[in-house]
Structures are given as C-alpha cells and as structure tokens.
Amino acid sequence: MASATTDRPSSSVRGLIAERGGDFSGYSFAFLDDMAKREIRRATLKAVAIPGHQVPFGSREMPIARGWGTGGLQLTLSLVGSEDRVKVIDQGDDASVNAVNLRRLVAQMTGAEETLDTAEATLIQTRHRIPEEVMRDDQILIFQVPIPEPLRFIERSVAVARGMHAEQDYSRMWLALYEDIVRRGEISAGAGYPVMVNSRFIMAPSPIPRWDIPKLNQADTLFLFGAGREKRIYAVPPHTDVRPLEFEDYAFKTEEFDGLACEVSGATDVYLVESPGENGTSRWTASDTNYADKVAAGIEVNKQW
C-alpha cells in the first residue's frame, strides 16, 4: 500500500492516526459502535451454538478494504477489551504489513496490548494459518475468511447451497471429491480442505494448509470465523469433532516436508514455506515466525495440539 501523507483525508488508518495525533477519543471503543458490537456478538453466540453453521451478520464498512480481513477484524473488535493482549498473523507472520496494521489499529482503538507471542495472546486474529504452538481454553483464534461457503464450488446458488446444508445434502460434495480422485488420483484441495463439523455441517476452514486441519478437532480453544465481504460468521467451539472429508481408502494426508528443516529454528516438524535464497537457491523457514523465533531462542514450545 502507498503510504498516506498528513494532508490526505482520513481514508486510511494512518490518515486517521496522523489527523488526530493519535487521539481516538471521538470514536467508540474498539471503533464499532455498541449496537454493532452487540449484533456481531449475538451472531457469534448463535454460531457457537450451532458449530459449523454460517450465521449472517451485518458486516460494517471498515477502515480497511473488503478482502483484507474485515470479517476477522469485526469479530476481534467485538470481543476485545482493554485488558486483552492481541496478536495478528498473516500466513503465520506477525510482521507482514497487513498484520502489523491490523494489530496497531486494534491496540490503538482499545488500549489492548500488542503481542507477538502466541502463548501470551488472549486473542489471535489470523489469515490462513493456525499457530504451531498449542492454544489454550482461555484464548480465542479468529480466522479471516474469504469464501465461507464450502459448497460454492459445486453450487453457485446461495439459496440452494443453504438448502443443502439444512438438509445435510452433501452427496454432490462427496461426488466432487470422487471426481477429483478419478481425475487426479487424490483429493487435490490444498488450502481450505473441507471439513465436517460435529458430524453435521460441512465447513470451509478458511484457506489454512492441510497441516493445520487436524488442530481443529477437539481443541481447547474457541475458533471463530469471520467473512466480511460475504457477511457470515461461524464457529468451532472447544472440544468439537472436526474431521476432514475423506474416503476410507483415500485418507486425508497433511503436507510432507521430507528432509527439510526450518533455517531459522532447525525445526523439522513444522509447516514450512519457501522463499528465494541467495544465488537462486530456496530458503525454507517455518511459516509461523513466532514459533521459529522461540525455538531459535531455546524456549520450549508445546505443539501437541
């Protein structure tokens, strides 16, 4: 994003901050007005009560563009208090521009503390990853969701898809997986592998890698999913069954990184991402930067989800 200047109208977070000299007293706590927060919380409660079911909500105009995490941000802002410690990651990285901006916005609008430490955070907003470090029952993980409807790719009509969820009519979803196996020899879905929640609803876990899918099952942590553009909230409450869709003879598998290790931490049992190294080589590092930093610093991290 181009950097804003002080004379620009307050159309960006930075513009707002500069214009007001860091003073947000004219705004509601946590940016959203109270009625908006209540409406979002009501939707959230309903989502928690019906695991995996997509609850519509009145997605607000936010000071970031749709598609940049407005759903997750609204969830975060509806829940955060000034005592919270907030962490935001983008594909596992606390330092990406978007993650930093969102984290600052939340902190400055609420007085909550910013943190990069997964263990310290009370609220973590994430795009496309679940931390490697195991999360506890006093933490909440909030996912930014681009496409909340797992049936979108087999049924274009929202109304029909909702009917299919209502009737648990998922044979066409299974058929799509069967056809995938016929054509490609495996279920090819990489990010956002569809899961069955509580033996009832098929859910889009947001585009997290397969690596993270098993963590959703029977976790201690509350998982909340917000899709701002699509105006949907859904949830996986703690201790809920979440199973990847699989055939008995074509079992779900996570990514494998045979022989590779994180260049920062030396860890081999983490989700690795590739980036260009020197002289045309590849550099493999853990996508969860906080995890890599902790391990590199010799801190013991529990990753037994």
Partner: peptide, 23 residues
C-alpha cells in the same frame, strides 16, 4: 459434467458409501 461412473457414484455416495474402490 460428471463422469459416467460419477453419475452412478452420486446415488451410492448419498447412501453413505465411503470407499472409492467399492464405489
């Protein structure tokens, strides 16, 4: 838009068949 086998599989999948080889 679905293979001939897939067309038949659809009814089997609706009846909770979950082994590709059996299907």
């Amino acid at each position: 838009m679905v293979t001939a086998g897939g067309n038949i599989a659809e009814r089997l999948l609706a009846a909770d068949w979950r082994r590709v080889d059996e299907i």
